[in-house]
């Protein structure tokens, strides 16, 4: 069981909560406490809008253990409107309709269960085509 790990990351996972650099206003996701632009300390929480577009994507048929029950699924690099790229699954999409540049929006979905059906449910961000 990896309870503490999932619990620790819940804000980032559920709500796309990252950071903003108080020195140069760069938005940071995933949070890393140090601004990748100016190197200053950046611990101010910032909730992303969840809007973005597909930068690249692919479909996974041979999924890792823990994800095989939902395969095949589409994963993407999503360019958030605030700047950062995020790696995430696309959901509610038909694979053939996905394109680079497709506008997407964040939703909170079930990512996996921790271990087997007795384990905790892990929820987190995914993206779907926005309308």
């Amino acid at each position: 069981m990896e309870i503490a790990r999932h619990w620790r990351l819940k804000q980032q996972r559920y709500g796309l909560v990252g950071e903003v650099c108080p020195h140069c206003d760069v938005k940071i996701f995933p949070p890393r406490d140090v601004c990748p632009e100016c190197g200053g300390e950046a611990k101010t929480l910032y909730t992303f809008s969840g809007k973005g577009e597909v930068y690249s994507y692919t479909t996974i048929y041979e999924a890792p253990a823990g994800y095989d029950e939902t395969a095949p699924y589409t994963v993407a690099l999503v360019k958030l409107e605030e700047g950062p790229l995020v790696t995430a699954q696309l959901t509610d999409v038909d694979e053939e309709s996905v394109q680079i540049g497709m506008p997407v929006e964040m939703v909170t979905r079930k990512l996996r269960q921790d271990g087997d059906e007795r384990g905790m449910l892990v929820y987190g961000y995914k993206f779907r085509k926005s309308t």
Binding site: Y14, Q89, R109, L111, Y123
Partner: peptide, 13 residues
């Protein structure tokens, strides 16, 4: 509901 949906995710939306 989709494979990744349940009462939690639907309630959140």
């Amino acid at each position: 509901p989709g494979l990744d949906e349940d009462v939690v995710t639907m309630s959140i939306e």
